[in-house]
C-alpha cells in the first residue's frame, strides 16, 4: 500500500504536468479586451493538481495519510484474480461489441459472468442472457429511438428481421 501511494502520486504529478504542457497550446495569460486566454483555466487547475500531489508525497514521507501507514499489499491474490476476471470481462464486452453488436456482446458477457463467474444454474443463465438483451433492444431501438452498435455486417439480416417487428 505504501509503495502504491507514492507511485500513484508520481503518476498523477506526471499527468498534471502533461495537462499543463498541453494547456499552453492556447494562451494562458490575460489577453487585453478578451479576458483570460483559453488555456489559462486548465493550466492553473493542473498547476494546483501538481502542488497537491506534492503535498500527498509530503504526507507519505511523514507517514500521516492512511495508505502510507498500511503494510497491507495494494492488490492481494484475490484482488489480482478479481481484476483479471471481472475487469477483463468488461474489456472483453467492449471489444466484442465491434464484432457481435452491443446486444450480442451483452448476451456473451452475461453468459460469462452469471454462468462462469456466478456459477448459477444453466437455465437461469440462459434465460437472463437472452431476456436482458431483448428487453434492452426494444427499450432502446423502439421506445427511445436510440440505435446501439450493430457489430459486423454478418448480423445485418438478423437486425433487419428484428426491425420488421418494431416498424
Amino acid at each position: 500500500m505504501r509503495r502504491a501511494e507514492i507511485v500513484t502520486a508520481g503518476l498523477l504529478a506526471l499527468l498534471s504536468m502533461y495537462i499543463m504542457w498541453k494547456s499552453t497550446e492556447l494562451q494562458i495569460g490575460y489577453i487585453r479586451g478578451q479576458g483570460p486566454g483559453g488555456g489559462a483555466w486548465p493550466f492553473w487547475l493542473a498547476a494546483i493538481c501538481l502542488v497537491s500531489t506534492g503535498f500527498i508525497a509530503l504526507n507519505w514521507w511523514r507517514g500521516t495519510s492512511g495508505p502510507s501507514q498500511s503494510d497491507e499489499p495494494f492488490l492481494d491474490s484475490y484482488g489480482r484474480k478479481m481484476l483479471v476476471l471481472v475487469g477483463g470481462g468488461i474489456v472483453g464486452f467492449v471489444v466484442l461489441t465491434y464484432i457481435f453488436s452491443m446486444y450480442g456482446a451483452m448476451a456473451l458477457f452475461l453468459l460469462y459472468y452469471i454462468g462462469f463467474l456466478g456459477r448459477h444454474r444453466w437455465w437461469v443463465t440462459l434465460i437472463l442472457a437472452t431476456a436482458i438483451p431483448t428487453v434492452f433492444f426494444f427499450f432502446f431501438e423502439a421506445l427511445m429511438r436510440i440505435t446501439l452498435p450493430k457489430g459486423m455486417p454478418f448480423l445485418e439480416p438478423f437486425f433487419n428481421y428484428m426491425n420488421t417487428i418494431i416498424y
Partner: peptide, 22 residues
C-alpha cells in the same frame, strides 16, 4: 453475481446512449 453484471451492462449501454460514441 446477477446484479453486478447487470450494473456493468447498464453502465456500458448507458454510457454509449449518452453520446453514441464508442
Amino acid at each position: 453475481t446477477i446484479l453486478a453484471p447487470l450494473i456493468f451492462v447498464l453502465s456500458i449501454v448507458g454510457g454509449y446512449a449518452t453520446t453514441r460514441d464508442m
